[in-house]
Amino acid sequence: MQKTYTFLSKSIENILVAIFGLLVIDVVWQVASRYIIGQSSSFTEEFARFSLIWLAVLGAAYINGQKEGHLSMDFLVTKLPPKKQVARKKYIQLFMILFALVVMIIGGGNLVYITLKLGQTSPALHIPLGYVYAIVPVSGLLIIFFCIHRILENEE
Score class of each variant (00 low, 15 high):
94 L>F: 01
76 L>Y: 08
34 R>H: 04
139 S>M: 01
43 F>C: 01
73 M>Q: 11
21 G>W: 04
64 N>K: 00
110 N>W: 06
4 T>P: 05
22 L>P: 13
59 G>Q: 01
23 L>C: 08
119 G>D: 02
58 L>F: 08
43 F>V: 14
150 R>K: 13
16 L>R: 02
83 K>E: 15
156 E>R: 15
97 I>P: 00
106 I>D: 08
105 I>H: 12
13 E>Y: 12
80 L>P: 06
148 I>W: 05
56 A>V: 09
110 N>M: 13
47 F>L: 15
115 T>V: 05
71 L>S: 02
61 A>H: 07
24 V>L: 09
113 Y>G: 01
154 N>A: 09
67 K>N: 11
87 A>I: 09
107 G>S: 06
37 I>Y: 15
122 S>L: 11
149 H>D: 05
104 M>P: 01
25 I>N: 03
151 I>A: 10
43 F>N: 02
34 R>Y: 02
12 I>K: 05
128 P>Y: 15
146 F>D: 12
139 S>L: 04
20 F>P: 08
52 L>E: 14
10 K>D: 13
2 Q>T: 12
155 E>C: 11
17 V>P: 03
111 L>I: 09
102 V>D: 03
38 G>D: 01
47 F>K: 09
37 I>Q: 12
82 P>Q: 14
20 F>V: 09
44 T>G: 06
116 L>K: 03
22 L>D: 08
35 Y>S: 03
92 I>M: 03
118 L>N: 06
57 V>T: 13
